[in-house]
Simulated scan of single mutants.
Amino acid sequence: MSDLYFGTDVFSELDRLQRHMSSVFNGFPSSLRSSRAGTFPSLNIGTTDEAIEIVAFAPGIDPSKLELSIDKGLLTIAGERAAARPAQEEGARAYAQERFNGAFRRVVELPQQADPDNVQARYVDGCLVITVGKREASKPRAITVQ
């Protein structure tokens, strides 16, 4: 027999503790480059020798409603995604809704080698692909030994 007694089920207490800890740390990213859960649109950022590529996963958005700007090394992606609701009977209420809708804005700090005058953006299969060229001085180059 154990001397330890819980007034309720142990597993429900562990579940309550996990929910409490999640709510306490929910607003804090796990690293400087990560964002909090549920941030829209999700981003992938990568680099090559020639450019920096940002892919924003934004399905269901009219590309003409997207706004992109670069100012002082910050790339801003803004827009709005309309609610997509199937035809419902009058008085029906949603049971669960996981799809984000509404206005959004994401800001990405670009590295110093980014060239704000050399930017291209295209919308392909629900993804906004932004390519920011690098400055010539920052590109790798071979040096000949004499």
Rank of each mutant, 00 (worst) to 15 (best):
N44M: 09
Q113R: 09
C127M: 14
S23T: 15
Q113K: 07
S12L: 08
I61S: 06
Q88D: 10
D15K: 14
I77K: 00
P63D: 02
A83H: 07
Q120H: 12
Q88F: 07
G91Y: 08
M1D: 11
R33I: 06
A58C: 10
P140I: 07
A137V: 14
E136Q: 14
I54E: 00
L66E: 03
A51V: 13
T47E: 10
G38K: 06
R122N: 14
Y5T: 08
L17C: 01
A56G: 01
R135D: 12
G60R: 07
I77Y: 00
S22K: 15
T47R: 09
V119L: 09
I143T: 15
L75K: 00
Q113I: 11
R16L: 07
I52S: 01
G79A: 11
C127W: 01
G46Y: 04
G126T: 12
E67M: 07
A37M: 09
S22A: 15
D71M: 03
P29I: 03
L4H: 08
Q88I: 12
E80F: 02
S35G: 10
T48M: 02
F6L: 15
E53T: 15
E53I: 14
V107D: 08
S2E: 08
F11A: 10
A58I: 10
E89G: 14
P111I: 03
N118R: 13
S64G: 03
Y5N: 09
G60T: 05
M1L: 13
F11K: 10
P63Y: 05
N26S: 15
G91L: 08
R122W: 02
E13W: 00
I70N: 05
F100Y: 11
V132P: 05
Q88E: 12
R93E: 15
H20K: 14
M21V: 15
E136R: 14
I54P: 02
G60E: 08
A96Y: 05
Q112E: 15
G38S: 04
E89T: 09
S138M: 13
D9H: 01
D62F: 04
S31Q: 09
L66I: 14
R105Y: 03
Q18M: 09
Q120S: 15
A37H: 11
I70C: 00
K139C: 11
I54M: 00
I143E: 15
P111N: 04
L74D: 04
A51K: 06
D3S: 11
R33G: 03
I130A: 02
A96L: 10
